[in-house]
Design a protein around this nucleic acid. Structure first.
Lengths: 196, 196
DNA sequence: AAATATCGCTAACATTCGTTAGTATCCTAT
DNA sequence: ATAGGATACTAACGAATGTTAGCGATATTT
């Protein structure tokens, strides 16, 4: 009888983590609980000793990621620094999250559609609010002439989606290293905003 | 008995088009043939008088989109103009495709994973080649000092993913108009590349 | 008007899915 | 050593899925 290996984590955490990897690879709907069980090294029914449902796995992933970003923007908003600097900090956080917690972040980004209410509405709300706060920082930057006059919500779209492109970096065979990736992205994205 | 309405299109085209809309909304796996049948106004089994399989629908969508982009880059590569101008032309094409053929382009972008070989490898190859050709234009621009020294594949990632953010524009309630969207995106993306 | 090909329907199929019930096994604390 | 809780197993369920077969209705051609 094959027990789930647990190194300082709960068995549930092991399952959630494997789920992230599987949902990223196949998509939430295409990944079956039997797939997940095999990845964990156990029979499908055994998973239910640790989790309530397949959807619960998605909840956990989506909201843990969303909360990390919300905490970060809480922190950044309070800083006494230029708008451009705040944006750069947020972008660097996004980039590093995408580099270091690839699978969770990716799943949260692409698979949230499969949440069901009330989680779905909740998630969408958090997302909307986050983007508005991000846009507000950009708008302040425009008023200060740090940033060229552009539509702030559009700029937010571009930034966030551009960063999700790191997905392709992960899957590519000839990767530049992570630091270079970060600097290149910052150079292009921040360079596209600044007034000169 | 409710026949499929066909205004100058084949019935198959009607089905493919509704499939695009449905796959975009729910994702390929989550969209069922019964859903599609309902959208078309017919019973599920009747669809099979016009198509071979659910996957065939995905093939058609993915490759018709991919071919449009390949034709465009064929055309742009031959032009006698600056690299920056070529890139701007490609970006504008991407943006307009994403605005005007939203659902097909989106599905091709997000759901190609569910293709099966040999279609899958084929699609991945086309995609890889397209991105290399795009990167080659950027690299020429860097050598000419039109574009600042950056990693070209990373720049391609950013551009393409940024444009896929138009998805959020479509779903948003307060849309700026399409022309403004295009100009804002060009301003930020091209602005992030140029040497000054 | 008759003949033929096209199209849509009902019914059903084999599979796969998420999940539950019930039981055996393992680990831990007394 | 043993009791009790945690964990895994086998078996099975009902529902949903893609797809096929066979038949009737409709449009098109002769």
């Amino acid at each position: 009888m094959a027990r789930i290996k647990t190194d300082n984590n709960t068995r549930k955490d092991v399952i959630v983590s494997k789920a992230a990897s599987l949902f990223r690879e196949k998509g939430f709907k295409a990944a079956s609980m039997r797939d997940l069980a095999e990845a964990v090294g156990v029979e499908a029914a055994s998973l239910y000793n640790h989790i309530k449902s397949k959807t619960e796995l998605l909840h956990e992933l989506c909201f843990s990621v969303a909360n990390r970003f919300l905490h970060k923007i809480d922190e950044v908003e309070l800083e006494k620094t230029s708008s451009i600097n705040k944006i750069e900090k947020l972008l660097r956080f996004h980039i590093n999250e995408m580099i270091n917690h690839y699978e969770e972040v990716y799943v949260s980004d692409r698979e949230w559609k499969h949440l069901s209410d009330p989680y779905l509405s909740n998630f969408q709300n958090q997302r909307r609010i986050y983007r508005k706060r991000f846009a507000a920082i950009i708008e302040t930057g425009i008023r200060n002439n740090e940033i060229k006059p552009i539509d702030a919500p559009t700029a937010v779209l571009i930034m966030l989606h551009a960063i999700s492109g790191i997905e392709s970096w992960h899957r590519s065979t000839q990767k530049i290293n992570a630091e270079e990736l970060e600097e290149n992205m910052i150079s292009i994205l921040v360079g596209g905003l600044v007034n000169r």
